[in-house]
Structures are given as structure tokens and as C-alpha cells.
Simulated scan of single mutants.
Amino acid sequence: MKDIFDKCNLGNLNLNSRIIRTGTWETENEDGGFLKNSVYDKYEAIAGSGVGAIVSEIFALDHKDRFYPYSTNQNYKGFIKEYKMITDIAHKYDVPILGQLAFFYYDDGENQKVEANDISIKGIRKLQAEVFMAAKKFAYAGFDGIQINMGNNFYLARFMNPYFNQRTDQYGGNTENRVRISAEIIKLIKKTMNLHVSCRINPLDVRKDGIDYEESKKIAKELEKAGADSIQLTARTISYLYDGREKNPFLVYVDELIDELDIPVILGGSLRDMDTINEVLNNTQVEFVSMSKPFVAQADFLKEWKENGEGKTICQSCNNCYSKKTSTCFKY
């Protein structure tokens, strides 16, 4: 029997449980980017709760990015010092921590919002270099890895989506070509740094001629081939297909994906109670579950779950923290 609080391994990372905390926005900072004391308290509570691993809040590449005002960044004077303190907090509890990089727009030097079809090879090299340097900065700050967000509607998700990418060169066309921009980044990181590389992807996007389950599996296999250490699934499209009568197609998909990969897959989704999560763990091939908004509502809820042997998050899935782009809960 699998249990949430099993000690386990996520690739090369040792975990104290099967729960991965995934961050979203960071609004608890001062002008200039410096973190408020509440951020350190939050990480202390999360790391000490029994979490398996932590994925940070989103780091943006560019101050002109769509979500920059709600994200944290690497380009202020205190980044290395402050985030070394954050990673030290996680490591005090033997919890690995990954820095999450996500960007919606990309400025190639000629166009502040250049899209997949228009970015030049020179622009692609500039983008790849900037992502590589972000990984370097994470390593300097003590992070155990990087999660590159290639899901939802972020830039790299659009780049490898045939709905958006109609290039006719080596970065367009078939799956391998559309994933190439990301695969080359992963290869370089793995060649030069001792970082766990996690990729966050969509199972499908509900767009005609976009990504479906089969295309998503192909994308995951290309990322694995490039050297990715784990895949994390987002869950933005579960509600479109699941009516509660048949088996959740997202769970069918994740089992099929796990069958096709040799690297761990982290299941994302609106899982809110210990019994349901353990049921998923024991009735599918899922080994790891990510949670985000529950940690916004109550940073240390896992501690209560572990002590009581059961539990349900106080998060009501109102989605206000995400939609209003804040790192604090509106109710709690």
C-alpha cells in the first residue's frame, strides 16, 4: 500500500513524502524585489510540515513580462543572499527545493512579444542562453533543481504547440522539432550543472489542431530523451472532459504516460483530502501529487494530516489567490 507520507525518491531527490508543493505568485516583497519576513515564515511552515519537495513561486525572465508584477525575480541585489536563506530553510528539514521559471512573453531584442513563428534563430539562441543563466542563478542560490514551466499558456507551451507553431525550419513541424528549443536547453543544463530538471506540461489544451493526449505523450518522451528528470502535469483542462460518471480521463492519461516514460510523473489537479489522494496513489500508477492553493490557505496543513492520519485542506478552491494573482489567501 502506498501512502502520502512514504519516504521515496523523485529521480535523484530524496523525499519525505509524495506531496510536491508547487508555488504560483509571489506578492510578499518590497520595492526592489526584497522578500518580506512573511515569505521566510511561509517556507519554514511548508518545509517543516512533511512535504516531499518544494517548487518555488514563479520566477520571471523579464521585467516587461505579463506576470512580472506578481512573480519573484532573480535580478535584484539580494537574490542570491535571500534565496540561499530560503533554500537553507528547506534543507534544514531535508526537503529538496526547485526554482520555477515561467515566462509568458519573450523579448528577442527586436520584438518585446515575439512569438514562435517570428523569432529568429538568433533570438532562439538568446532565449536559450537566458534560461540557462537562470538555471545557473538557481544553482548559486542553493536550489536542487529547476522546474521549467512549459504548461498552461506560457511561452514554451505555445512554442511546442502546433496550434501556435507553424515554422518550417528545425524548430517547427513535427513534435521533435517543436520541442527542440526546450530539449537543447535541458541538454545544456544537464551537461554543465548538477540540477534536477523538471518540466511542467499540459495533457491537452482543448484547441482544434492543438495538443491532445497523444501529442502530449510524444512531447513528454522528447523531454525525457533530452535529459529531463521528471514531468509535472498541470490540470487546467480536467474539468472540460470529466462528468463524474466514467473514470476520470486525466487519470487514464497519466497511467498511460507513466507506462511510456522511465522518469517520474507528478500528478497535478484539485486534490484536496488525504483519503482521495491515497485512493489515487493506490488505484493508479501515480507516485507523486502536486498541490498549490492548499499551501496558500494553510502552509503547514500536512503536519495535521500526518498527525491525524486523515485530513482535508481548508482551501475552498475559490481560485481567488490565482486569478487575482496574490500569494496570500483571501479567506484565511
Rank of each mutant, 00 (worst) to 15 (best):
D62Q: 13
P203Y: 09
D118E: 14
I54D: 07
K324W: 15
K221S: 06
N165P: 10
I238V: 14
G311Y: 03
G123S: 08
F301E: 02
N194G: 03
D108A: 03
N194F: 09
Y68C: 00
S327P: 07
R245P: 00
L156N: 08
T313E: 04
T22R: 01
T24D: 10
E224Y: 08
K42Q: 08
Y40C: 04
E30W: 12
V296E: 01
N73I: 03
F295L: 06
Q112G: 13
F164I: 09
K217A: 14
Q100R: 12
Q232M: 15
D31V: 10
V55D: 07
R236V: 14
C199D: 04
N161V: 02
Q112S: 14
S327E: 11
G210S: 12
Q232Y: 13
R207G: 05
G123Q: 00
K2E: 09
G172P: 01
N9R: 12
T72G: 09
N174I: 05
M291Y: 07
V252P: 07
I314G: 12
C315A: 10
I89W: 08
C318D: 09
I146D: 04
F143A: 09
L261G: 06
R200T: 04
L241R: 14
I19H: 01
K303A: 15
I146F: 06
V265S: 07
D300E: 06
I146M: 13
S182Q: 10
L281W: 08
K2M: 11
S323E: 14
I119M: 14
V265I: 02
Y105F: 15
D275C: 04
G210N: 08
C315T: 05
S327W: 08
K84D: 12
G227K: 01
I54S: 07
A116F: 01
K36A: 02
Y240L: 08
A45W: 09
D108I: 00
D212W: 10
S216I: 00
K81N: 15
N73E: 05
D108K: 02
N29Y: 12
A226Q: 11
T24H: 11
L302F: 07
D88P: 00
G109A: 06
E310M: 13
L241M: 12
V286K: 10
N73A: 04
N248R: 05
G210P: 13
R125P: 03
F104K: 15
D144N: 09
N111S: 13
T87L: 12
I80T: 15
V265T: 08
I146Y: 08
A226Y: 03
H91E: 04
F295D: 01
D209P: 03
V296Q: 08
G52L: 03
A47R: 10
A129D: 15
E256A: 07
K221A: 06
D144Q: 02
N9Q: 12
F138T: 02
N117W: 05
N37W: 01
Y163H: 12
T22G: 09
Y322L: 13
V55N: 07
N320L: 11
I121S: 07
S17D: 05
A183E: 13
E176F: 10
I314P: 00
F132D: 09
A141K: 00
N320C: 07
T87G: 09
K225T: 13
W305Y: 05
N12H: 10
N75S: 11
I46V: 14
D275R: 13
F104D: 13
E44C: 05
T24R: 12
Y155L: 07
R167I: 06
N161K: 03
Y240R: 14
I19R: 06
Y163V: 04
R167K: 08
Y40H: 01
D6M: 02
E222H: 12
Y70A: 15
